[in-house]
């Protein structure tokens, strides 16, 4: 490739096309001596931050859970929704029975092989973005029924799980802490 004139920019900048465009624009503007408009640049930045931040804020503060109590952890889930540890003060209200209106599925109780097709069907009926919390040890890893012939060893063999809560059963305060962690994940404050 002799005889070609030397390129004005390096190879590393060529790889990133946005950087390349910036370089080209600044090169062309440099000859014109126009001062960039600070007001419009800041306005664009703030509206972008406001809109995506507002969407994330509203999504994380109004997560509606689905009633999925299978076994003993469902009793603590009912206690979580009633008056001492109030789930509604962080937006976790409206335990709905239909999956079309819900964001979070809290799997509480042990999962047997007979009920796995129903769980998959309900998960596919939920609208994205959707999240799953595995509540208790039976949903995390099989629990005390690890050696049984009819049990799935954890719900994460079937569905993707976001937060695991350990305990048998975990106290409702533990579920509240898991809820706060899930809210941080939905709001983008935690690196996934």
């Amino acid at each position: 490739m002799e005889g070609q004139e030397k390129r004005p920019y390096s190879d590393a900048a060529f790889m990133d096309s946005k950087q390349e465009m910036d370089l080209l624009v600044s090169k062309s503007l440099a000859g014109r001596e126009v001062k960039p408009n600070v007001l419009f640049a800041n306005l664009e930045k703030t509206t972008k931050a406001l809109s995506s931040g507002m969407v994330k804020w509203s999504r994380k503060n109004s997560l509606w859970p689905m009633q999925f109590g299978l076994a003993c952890c469902a009793i603590e889930l009912m206690d979580f929704g009633s008056s001492r540890i109030d789930a509604e003060r962080r937006g976790f209200l409206m335990f709905r029975a239909t999956p079309r209106q819900c964001d979070v599925m809290i799997v509480a109780g042990w999962v047997t092989k007979s009920i796995v097709p129903e769980i998959k069907r309900l998960y596919e009926q939920m609208l994205s973005p959707k999240y799953v919390i595995a509540y208790g040890e039976c949903a995390t890893c099989g629990g005390p029924w690890f050696e049984s012939y009819n049990i799935m060893k954890g719900i994460d063999q079937v569905l993707p799980v976001d937060v695991y809560v350990a305990g048998c059963p975990p106290k409702p305060e533990n579920l509240f802490g898991a809820l706060v962690k899930l809210q941080k994940k939905v709001g983008g404050e935690v690196e996934v």
């Binding site: 092989k113 007979s114 690890f146 050696e147 049984s148 012939y149 009819n150």
Partner: peptide, 22 residues
Amino acid sequence: LEKWDGIDPPLRKSFVWGQEYR
């Protein structure tokens, strides 16, 4: 038991399950 194909009745002593976990 639903969807259980061709395995021994569970409560007999000849049905051994989970030996590798113990």
